[in-house]
Design a protein around this nucleic acid. Structure first.
Lengths: 164, 164
DNA sequence: TCCAATCATTTTATACTTAAAGTAATTTGG
DNA sequence: CCAAATTACTTTAAGTATAAAATGATTGGA
């Protein structure tokens, strides 16, 4: 605790340059990789990243999920999902129906064609990611996983503290 | 090298699950923090993250920079910068003038008011970031910096190989 | 029962983003 | 010097994204 001449707690402006630089580097890395993936998806499959991401969520479940589920998992707004789903239904990748139990709820699923298309894309996508991270050793990967988990927890705690 | 019965090279489908998980975690972390920063900027200063980022670029230089410079540094498209600058000039944060030496070039600078406003935002922003990363030890931060630098280099190499 | 609160989704308004095509200015090779 | 290439920026079209308000459905408590 730093005290001033009158023995009261004082807020000395601390230097947070390291954290700022870390955040910028994290952002740069993500932007770089995201741009690369986006470009390859467009080039190879003429599909956008948000559509791919949405299909990836749905591929994990056989019986579909609600728009809210998708919205939470993708960490995007509801309205965003509405539009995305609209276009994917239009293009035949998704199937959408109103829940019998609760007519507020829309359940969306991959169509057969949509799933097949996604599996093709996902297989290549996996190779791209492997290539992008190719210079990291298995130890690097483990260590990054650990540190990012810690970062995520710290960020969530901070976010929670603000909202509370 | 893996060979099949006819002694030709074969591509066995390797498992890249670790890399995929790493990428998803990286993305999750960034999205989480970005959302948090975006929310706070809007709440406290009614400003968007892209505008803040653009002003941050300009704050680093006294005499302004060209739109292309900004575009490269922010890793976004030219057209994107055109629109952002338009709105920031409109709101009085930015000053824009055509270069005397080359009439294709637009040089943009923070106005006095714009710089003052940015400094206020930046000071708080720094505290938010510090808080978001608060649970990381200095050693964690150093290690993350190192691993992200390695990741960035690896990704750039992969991107370059594709374009080449 | 019924109505107020809640919930899931959609709509609206605004802003951001990209890729690609277009415009205008400058540079360069013949 | 001049046409072709390049450069800097803008425009366009489509899509992605948010916050906030609106709509419609469900639920829980008086």
């Amino acid at each position: 605790m730093i005290l001033d001449s009158e023995t009261k707690a004082v807020e000395l402006p601390e230097d947070h340059g390291d954290e700022i630089r870390l955040w910028l580097r994290l952002l740069t890395c993500t932007t770089l990789i995201e741009g690369e993936v986006r470009g390859r998806l467009r080039e190879r499959f003429d599909v956008t990243l948000p559509r791919f991401d949405l299909m990836a969520q749905l591929d994990k479940v056989p019986d579909g999920m609600t728009l809210s589920d998708v919205s939470k998992r993708m960490m995007v707004s509801n309205g965003n999902v509405t539009g995305l789903v609209e276009r994917l239904v239009e293009s035949g990748h998704l199937d959408r129906r109103t829940s019998d139990a609760d007519r507020r709820v829309q359940v969306i699923r991959l169509t057969k064609a949509g799933r097949a298309e996604f599996r093709k894309m996902a297989a290549e996508h996996e190779l791209w990611i492997a290539d992008i991270f190719a210079d990291l050793t298995p130890k690097d990967v483990r260590e990054l996983m650990r540190l990012l988990a810690k970062t995520k927890a710290s960020a969530q705690k901070s976010a929670k503290a603000r909202t509370a």
